Amino acid sequence: MRGTADTADPALAQTIADRFDLGAVVGAMRSLARPDDMGRRWSVDTDRGRFTVRTMDNWLPIVDAGTDVALQQAAAAAGVLLPTPVRSRDGNIIESIGGHRWRAYQHLPAGPPLAGPVSSGGRPRGRRRARHAARPGVAGRPGQPVARQATRPGQLGWAGVHRDRPAGTLGRATGGGGTDAGGPGRHRS
């Protein structure tokens, strides 16, 4: 792990690893993120692998921890990819250690990105062209290539849109989300 993550006391890391039977700690226990509404997530490497542990100080459960783990296990059995919860040596899901409530999970490595990077090129390449759905207030016809849409106010019939409009209402007239008497994105002259 790179960066300037906070590190935990090595004795605390080993105590957590011992309580959850994670193995011998082989590196620094590092924070993964700032505290959130439940607590804080940490990464700890042991001789058995990498684990994610988190404080559960502010956790207000909708269901008890046992039901939560049962739901996670059912989701995993149905094919949902998620970190596997780790129970303590005593069979508990949450353990009080060093003044905090802790929970442990097997680390879930990140996979490949869901989509390739988006090109920063100006216009589409090849035979593919961007198309838009039939939405009120969008210039052009549904399914018409964006590159061929009318882009000048005179071509769109909006020549006088800005005229006779109160200040701050141009967005409504040009399809910015509001409606006029003529329907979404239409100007009433």
Rank of each mutant, 00 (worst) to 15 (best):
R41C: 04
G116D: 01
R50G: 01
R152F: 08
L12R: 07
A13I: 11
G157S: 07
N58M: 11
R129A: 06
A110H: 12
G91D: 03
R48T: 04
Q149G: 04
L156R: 14
R128G: 05
A28M: 01
D45E: 08
L22H: 11
A11C: 07
R128C: 13
I93K: 03
I62F: 10
P117V: 14
P142R: 15
Q73E: 02
G183R: 02
S120T: 15
D45Q: 11
S43V: 01
T151M: 06
A17C: 07
R188H: 10
R148G: 00
D47Y: 04
E95M: 14
R165S: 08
G116A: 08
G171A: 14
A130T: 13
G183T: 03
M38S: 08
L22C: 12
R127K: 00
G140W: 07
R87V: 14
G111Y: 03
G140C: 11
A134G: 02
G182R: 15
G171K: 10
W102I: 06
S120G: 09
T4E: 10
V63H: 10
R48H: 13
V146L: 13
R165D: 03
G3M: 03
S119C: 00
A115W: 08
R103I: 13
A173C: 10
A130R: 10
R188T: 02
P145K: 08
R34K: 15
R135E: 01
L22Q: 07
M56I: 10
G185W: 01
I93D: 00
R141P: 01
V26Y: 02
S43H: 03
G91F: 07
P10Q: 12
L32M: 14
R87K: 08
A139G: 04
T52D: 01
A65H: 09
P10C: 06
R19Y: 09
A33Q: 15
D18A: 10
R54K: 15
G49M: 04
L32F: 01
W102Y: 13
A173V: 04
T55Y: 08
R125I: 15
A8W: 00
I97T: 08
D64V: 15
I93H: 02
R19A: 15
E95R: 13
H100E: 00
G79S: 07
R127G: 04
R152V: 12
G175N: 04
H100V: 11
V69W: 01
R40A: 05
D9I: 07
T67S: 11
